[in-house]
Design a protein around this nucleic acid. Structure first.
Length: 567
DNA sequence: GCCGTTTTCGGCCCGACTGTTTTCAGTCG
């Protein structure tokens, strides 16, 4: 919900202002935590009577939330903002500049924003400040230049192949016994800040040297004994940690995070009179009781193994058994794909052959409908011909079932882009929003509800229409969509394309808790689009999805029975 | 500011690296 997003960024801003103002770190963290809770909240914050019931939201934050919802502002924040130059908040985005330095720059060198910082560097004003040597100033200049050209976070679809290339390159270096990526990438987050690589080696110098001279490295940011960091030509930062092999599990757990998960696990250790850090789990006598594998660490803490995708500091520590989360191998069909009939690059047969190679028993051909002119959407006449072509291909291609379908546009008012008589001829109907993606929340909710409740619709494709980093997409009341999807047995899609990942992770959890079924599809337009399925799986796992809640895991007969269900 | 299976008060994760200083503050994750 947009109010959730607004309030989340307001609390984040609050935290930054508090930092610059020199407030207690715990108070700052409390605000960051509230920002995070609001960002992940699926329900509309305005519909929650008592925000204090949310974990991490106390009396004071709840009052601020209510104040904002009623008046559109938070007085305390406004007063704080008035006490410092607004540009100082931008300065906090510069790598290497923290609250102390920003404050000093302001009070001792009249630096109030990025332009005045640049001017201060140019006229040599900073050089006279204590603890401000040439290297520090050079680093600030470098960070400023980098900040101008960089986008904040990378999509998982960009980061994953780079991380895998770094790992496969470095594992060949002499002495390396273990190497794996950790961090938010291992947790499968849709966007990644930087890539964390963890390695064990008997020749650390050799590995550090190989890492710092990797192809594409434009700057070595850190070069220590156990820690190195580089920046790549694509703008991404990669960190390498070198750890003892015996402590690999402890380090992997620590550097996989999330920070919130680590804190929760650490607190659990403390309650058991133990101490946990990146080197292992230690008892009261300081003896290491677990460190080699993550599994051993969790076990000693009395926890089942927690899959990395669940480690977000939410309810994962309350589980009694490791949930059987969905895996790539569980997917037996792809139910949303395009051919050259609309904007795809493959023929029906080529698409089917590609799907067969991936081990699917079924592929659905769902080209665009008539209103998607930009995507060469099919007129009713062309669709009729297409259905005939698909049925013919289904006869010709052995070893896979080809379903005749459509990705039919959901108009702004919720009507579908084909008449019911035509839709009834199809094996499968995926209904998706493609236009009017800025309409208000109320209209978007009504629009999507109408599509979910339509008896001929099987799946809602990329329900919000968001594109990561480009457009936020629709902002409907998600819980009411989940309830309707459960009641009508309409599946909600996780579009696996890494630009979309829509539904997002938190929505997946909300949908399955409400009893709705999920469909994970690649929306393939070309052969290698099938490779993106892994990102859909990671998002699904982050949403605690198990195979029994996903229609793509059904056998062919079960899938056909599900498609034949009545609303 | 938030929280509670010892607690409504007293904790709140903690180590590595850099740059500058000469023993450590600041930043990062």
């Amino acid at each position: 919900m947009s109010a959730n997003r607004e309030l989340s960024s307001i609390f984040q801003k609050f935290a930054t202002v508090l930092e610059i103002s020199g407030a207690s770190g715990f108070k700052i963290n409390a605000h960051v935590k509230v920002a995070r809770v609001l960002e992940d909240l699926v329900e509309d914050i305005a519909s929650i009577k008592d925000p204090e019931a949310l974990p991490g939201v106390g009396k004071s934050s709840a009052a601020k939330i209510k104040e904002y919802l009623t008046t559109g502002e938070i007085k305390e924040l406004d007063e704080l903002l008035n006490s410092i130059p607004a540009g100082l908040l931008d300065l906090m985005q510069v790598q290497g500049l923290g609250p102390k330095t920003v404050r000093r720059l302001w009070q001792e060198a009249d630096v109030v924003d990025i332009p005045t910082l640049k001017a201060a560097i140019a006229d040599g004003r900073l050089e006279s400040m204590p603890r401000m040597g040439k290297k520090t100033i050079d680093n600030i200049s470098d960070s400023l230049a980098f900040l101008e050209g960089a986008s904040a976070r990378s999509r998982i679809g960009d980061a994953m192949p780079i991380a895998e290339l770094v790992v496969t390159t470095l594992e060949k270096i002499s002495g390396v016994s273990k190497i794996e990526f950790a961090g938010s990438l291992r947790r499968g987050k849709e966007t990644i800040g930087d890539i964390d690589i963890l390695a064990s080696t008997i020749e650390p110098e050799l590995l550090a040297e190989a890492f710092c001279t990797l192809k594409g490295v434009t700057k070595v940011l850190v070069r220590g004994v156990t820690k190195c960091a580089v920046r790549l030509d694509c703008g991404m930062q990669v960190d390498l940690r070198i750890v003892e092999e015996d402590a690999f599990g402890a380090a992997l757990m620590y550097f996989t995070g999330s920070k919130e998960h680590n804190i929760m696990v650490r607190e659990r250790a403390i309650k058991q009179n133990k101490r946990l850090n990146e080197y292992g789990l230690f008892n009261a006598q300081e003896a290491c009781v677990a460190s080699h594998t993550e599994r051993a660490m969790y076990e000693d803490l009395g926890l089942p193994f927690i899959p990395p995708e669940l480690r977000e500091g939410k309810q994962e520590l309350t589980i009694e058994h490791t949930p059987e989360l969905i895996q790539l191998e569980d997917i037996k069909s792809d139910l949303h794909d395009h051919t050259i009939a609309s904007d795809g690059h493959l023929t029906i047969v080529a698409l089917a052959e590609e799907a067969k190679q991936r081990g699917f028993h079924t592929i659905a051909v769902t080209d665009h409908s008539q209103s998607s002119v930009q995507a060469n959407g099919l007129s009713p006449e062309r669709l009729l011909q297409h259905i005939s072509d698909i049925k013919q291909a289904n006869e010709a291609v052995k070893g896979i079932n080809i379903l005749a379908g459509s990705e039919v546009d959901i108009h702004a008012d919720g009507r579908l882009d084909y008449e019911d008589e035509l839709l009834a001829l199809l094996d499968i109907v995926v209904a998706s929003p493609h236009s009017a993606l800025k309409q208000d929340s109320k209209k978007a909710t009504a629009r999507l509800l109408k599509a979910i409740e339509h008896p001929l619709v099987h799946i809602i494709g990329h329900p919000t229409g968001r594109v990561l980093g480009k457009r936020p997409g629709l902002d409907p009341d998600m819980p009411s969509l989940f309830a309707a999807a459960a009641a009508c047995n309409t599946a909600l899609e996780i579009n696996a394309n890494s630009w979309r990942l829509d539904l997002r992770d938190t929505h997946v959890r909300g949908a399955i808790d409400a009893g709705a079924m999920i469909s994970i599809n690649t929306d393939a337009h070309a052969a290698n689009d099938f490779d993106q399925l892994r990102y859909g799986i990671l998002t699904a796992r982050r949403g605690w999805l198990t195979p029994d809640k996903c229609i793509n895991c059904l056998t062919f007969d079960a899938l056909m029975a599900w498609l034949a269900r009545s609303c």
